[in-house]
């Protein structure tokens, strides 16, 4: 699947396009097919996101998993500060990245 990610313009937070808005959670990401360029152009112009780009990802029972480690780290947070990640209570969260 293709998903779109970027950063919130004002806060810099990593966000994922869920089909209607930007979510902090990768599991909300929607398969954008071949519409990424339109979404990115429109959303950047509206200043809802900055530095948006499209990536490959896969989806299974555990949720959505970006293909590249860099985007998995963006989705989670620093693997060395899981207390600051989006899964602070999950001791296995760092393993998800690898």
């Amino acid at each position: 699947m293709k998903i779109v990610t970027g950063n919130d313009l004002k806060t810099g937070a990593v966000t994922w396009w869920d089909g209607a808005a930007w979510s902090l959670h990768v599991n909300d990401a929607m398969d954008v097919g071949d519409h990424s360029a339109d979404i990115i152009a429109r959303e950047e112009a509206a200043r809802r996101v900055v530095s948006a780009y499209v990536i490959d990802a896969s989806s299974d029972v555990d949720g959505i998993r970006p293909a590249h480690i860099k985007d998995r780290i963006r989705a989670l947070g620093p693997t060395v500060r899981l207390d600051l990640s989006l899964k602070p209570a999950d001791p296995a969260a760092g393993t998800w990245v690898i």
Binding site: N7, T11, A13, S51, R74
Partner: peptide
Amino acid sequence: NGLYLQLHAY
């Protein structure tokens, strides 16, 4: 002004 956009934030 030293402000980058990095992996998780500015």
